[in-house]
């Protein structure tokens, strides 16, 4: 549970998805997804592997094109954006990959400075370094600034990945399986970091996970996905006190692993 009350503006929708379809060959991955993310809100998309969760956020980030449906992010229809407009939008939408996706050939400091160097070439080195220090401090890994990604643990890589996303001060954060493959203590640290990002940076987030603990800790709303569509949406307790067989099945599956 969160130790603070998030400031959610229900009159302000930052992501609006309508009737979204996506297939890969004969695999129908998304089959009519509808979703609304409000400003300041954390929505957790919960589902077993292969249900299309990651595909959904990759479409939101413009990494994949949908077959049908609308994807409106901060007032822009993502599938219709050209490369320049899409790049401008991506400055406002952060994407945290499952394994951090840190650049192997760069140190942690360089990983964080890289998006700034590319997108804000006029920024002075001192200012850039200061921002790197601030973000590293926010993710609690200031001491790793000169380390290479290969020297970091899985949890540290994810935290640096979140930091690298935060450095561009995005309005929206997309987390792809932030706690996958981590021990329970590190999972709790990541969950706390996601909440801290929401509180401190006033971000709105979509968190993709199959981890119910993460969902309960970080989500203001839960959307359960099965076979490419949402079968249930609501607060965690509303969703998981339901007697729906599919929901119970997922709950039991999660806690017997």
């Amino acid at each position: 549970m969160k130790s603070f009350t998030p400031e959610i503006d229900y009159d302000n929708t930052v992501i609006s998805i309508g009737d979204l379809y996506k297939s890969f060959g004969t695999n129908h991955v998304l089959r009519g997804v509808d979703l609304k993310l409000h400003k300041g809100e954390n929505i957790v998309v919960l589902g077993r592997s292969g249900t299309g969760k990651s595909v959904l956020i990759k479409i939101i980030a413009g990494l994949l094109k949908p077959d049908a449906g609308t994807v409106n992010v901060l007032g822009e229809e993502v599938p219709q954006l050209g490369p320049i407009a899409l790049r401008e939008l991506r400055m406002k939408v952060g994407f945290c990959f499952q394994n951090g996706a840190l650049y192997d050939s760069m140190t942690v400091g360089e990983n964080l400075a890289f998006p700034l160097k590319r997108n804000e070439p006029n920024m002075k080195a001192e200012q850039r370094n200061k921002l790197v220090d601030i973000v590293l401090d926010a993710v609690g890994l200031s001491h790793t600034i000169d380390q290479m990604p290969a020297e970091l643990s899985g949890g540290q890589r994810k935290r640096i990945g979140i930091g690298r996303t935060l450095i561009l001060r995005p309005e929206i954060m997309l987390y792809d399986e932030p706690t996958a493959g981590l021990d329970p203590i590190t999972c709790t640290e990541i969950n706390n970091l996601i909440n801290e990002v929401q509180r401190r940076f006033k971000t709105s987030s979509i968190i993709i996970t199959h981890d119910l603990t993460c969902a309960r800790a970080t989500g203001d709303e839960i959307a359960v996905m099965k076979e490419g569509k949402f079968i249930k949406q609501g607060k965690f307790d509303e969703v998981f006190t339901d007697n729906d067989e599919l929901i119970r099945e997922f709950y039991d599956y999660n806690f017997t692993q």
Binding site: L63, P83, R87, R90, G94, F95, L168
Partner: peptide, 22 residues
């Protein structure tokens, strides 16, 4: 290929960097 399969190229893309150019 290693950058591709570990999503480093996608990470550049979503950081508003043109990975093809770079």
């Amino acid at each position: 290929a290693s950058m591709k399969v570990t999503e480093q190229i996608d990470a550049m893309e979503v950081s508003a960097i043109n990975p093809f150019k770079y």
